[in-house]
Design a protein around this nucleic acid. Structure first.
Lengths: 221, 221
DNA sequence: GAGTGGTCTAGACCACGGG
DNA sequence: CCGTGGTCTAGACCACTCG
């Protein structure tokens, strides 16, 4: 059935036969046809509605899936030696935007971390993070001097949802120094927020030197 | 079962009961348990191996899914008026990298297009594209003066695989002019290659002004 | 109202791969 | 070897929603 879509034997917008007919045609049960069609629908190739039937989707966009690995693995897998540097650790009242995301009262503190990830001594990623202590109280006992919050959170705290924003930006003066950027080198910024159910866990800004960073999509599945 | 993972009742790395036992526990058939576990495994929460059983995955990365919409829709949905400008259209021999990707002989031409997408008169995206004429011969008959290659390809040519690369970059002189960039404004670059089965369809570089562009992930499913 | 997909059952056979 | 998950069948009932 995938071949029929790719070969345009079934055209976009076109109604395809119902499950019973396809089962007859392919010599299998409707259960099996249903599973195949649901898989194709999950990939976005088909649109299915009860009574209305199944149509080939007229695509109006393309999806890209990115796997954002643990920085340490990313660096080690490229054959470099990983180093980690804690720059700042502070429990204080977060800016309004963060407090709102964490649903904190105006005097309720959160945990702030700034740190640097290096490959072969070269700065690779600047991590600027707030952690919601009311969601992750055990973070308070962590010094984050050896293990990065990135890695600790991934290991210790499950999450059910994550939001990512990618952007290009001019480097701030501090970023220029910490990331040892070349003159006028921009940065690639990843902003990530994660939740466990309804509760906000952490909000982080990951900054990379543009000349040494790119993101490549992986295949779906 | 998802709740048991999120609540860490089933810990990462831990073996969970087999399908038969779960079926007994949840009062349903093994078929139903199997479907649920396969769905959780597809989301990357479980790892399943015959005989070895099913384990909660120790996560080492996070996935982000981006929907890259048709530029025209993106602009129109933000309430702006869309304009399109064809800058260049040429059938010529492509650079080595493109020829290799398209599997073209060294004298075999391809179709080159350069064009600009604007929102309310402001440049939003510069599109720089090669189309493989041996895969998409009917593209040769298209002038691309009114309909962008972006839109035409999405409508006319199915694809089965796409690769995306995101990066931040310093703007080239031409990009600075065409995108009317502010002084030292960097660009956000999307490079995309698409295939239909084994055949390479097109390779495109989409350049956006950093100050007016960001990409936000969507939820899986 | 009736046709479509959504979902479940109860059972079967099989492929893989760990012990 | 044999327990595990992978997949299929044959059938049932149901929920949605189009016409």
């Amino acid at each position: 059935m995938l071949a029929r879509i790719n070969s345009q034997q079934w055209l976009p917008g076109e109604l395809i036969p119902n499950e019973q007919d396809l089962a007859g045609e392919f010599g299998c049960t409707r259960t099996t046809v249903n599973r195949a069609l649901q898989a194709l629908a999950a990939e976005g190739l088909l649109e299915r509605r009860r009574k209305a039937g199944t149509r080939v989707v007229q695509r109006t966009s393309r999806d890209a899936v990115f796997t954002i690995p643990l920085v340490r693995h990313e660096i080690e897998n490229s054959g470099q030696t990983y180093h980690y540097l804690l720059l700042n650790r502070d429990i204080s009242v977060a800016p309004e935007a963060i407090r709102a995301a964490f649903a904190l009262a105006s005097d309720q503190p959160a945990l702030y971390i700034k740190c640097l990830h290096l490959g072969d001594g070269e700065p690779y990623q600047l991590e600027d993070r707030w952690i919601n202590l009311s969601a992750v109280p055990k973070a308070e006992a962590q010094s984050f001097e050896v293990v990065s919050p990135n890695e600790w959170l991934l290991r210790e705290v499950p999450f059910s949802r994550a939001e990512h924003i990618f952007r290009a930006a001019v480097a701030a003066t501090e970023e220029q120094q910490l990331l040892q950027l070349k003159a006028d080198e921009p940065v690639f910024v990843i902003e990530r927020k994660t939740w466990l159910e309804a509760q906000s866990i952490t909000s982080v800004r990951l900054t990379h030197p543009a000349y040494r960073f790119k993101l490549i999509s992986r295949d779906p599945l």
